[in-house]
């Protein structure tokens, strides 16, 4: 955050004192979770009140994802490692929003809050995927994301369960085409790119997503 000049600080204090009569809900000393919950108001505009995601606003479900991965992605958005590609329509919407988290404390607080939300299992929206074929294809994913899609932090592989399926599909497509993961700042995303390329066509992507969706149940 920007350094505040002394007299400006004085103004703030004066102003605060003037308002002291009005202040009933002082959150200055509130718990970090309170702050996270408060900041989440912003996210809920697109991601839903419980972080369940909203297809209308291209916002995936985020509730109950791992803290480390949420934090990492928020940082990527904020620092311009993700959501800067001109074809990443959803990413370009998310990037400005992440810039709203001005301090690391705020970023961590909101990630904490989102991680604490109960995970949701969303309905499948992609049709035509064959989960049995998908299981075979999933063999490749398994080495990093785990047999049950539970993720593996040391390999920077997030869990795959409790995601919205259209989000998974877009991301695989984005990795494949370099919309995501080709930015030099996105070192972990770069690892995913060759993996996504292994999925030869649309059908393969649908199959593997159908399988992943069965893991969430």
């Amino acid at each position: 955050m920007k350094r505040i000049g002394l007299w400006q600080y004085v103004l703030r204090v004066l102003c605060g004192t003037g308002l002291a009569l009005l202040v009933f809900s002082n959150t200055a000393n509130a718990e970090e979770n309170e702050r996270g919950k408060q900041l989440f108001e912003m996210c809920s505009q697109c991601h839903g009140l419980q972080g369940e995601g909203m297809a209308l606003s291209l916002a995936p479900s985020i509730a109950g994802l791992e803290l480390w991965s949420l934090e990492a992605q928020l940082r990527k958005f904020r620092d311009g490692a993700r959501g800067v590609h001109h074809e990443d329509i959803a990413g370009m919407r998310m990037r400005p929003m992440s810039m709203w988290l001005k301090t690391d404390e705020d970023l961590v607080a909101v990630a904490n809050y989102v991680a604490s939300l109960p995970a949701v299992t969303s309905e499948a929206t992609i049709e035509g995927g064959d989960a049995t074929k998908g299981k075979a294809l999933y063999g490749l994913c398994q080495s990093c994301h785990g047999a049950n899609g539970e993720g593996l932090q040391p390999l920077n592989a997030p869990k795959l369960t409790n995601h919205t399926d259209w989000y998974l599909k877009t991301q695989i497509y984005n990795f494949k085409t370099g919309i995501r993961g080709s930015n030099p700042k996105d070192t972990t995303g770069a690892l995913m790119r060759p993996m996504a390329m292994a999925l030869a066509n649309d059908q393969a992507i649908n199959d593997v997503i159908s399988y992943i969706m069965t893991l969430s149940k």
Binding site: L19, L22, F24, S25, Q38, E41, Q45, W100
Partner: peptide, 8 residues
């Protein structure tokens, strides 16, 4: 005060 956080 009296309002809360002003999100975008």
């Amino acid at each position: 005060p009296l309002f809360g956080l002003v999100t975008p």
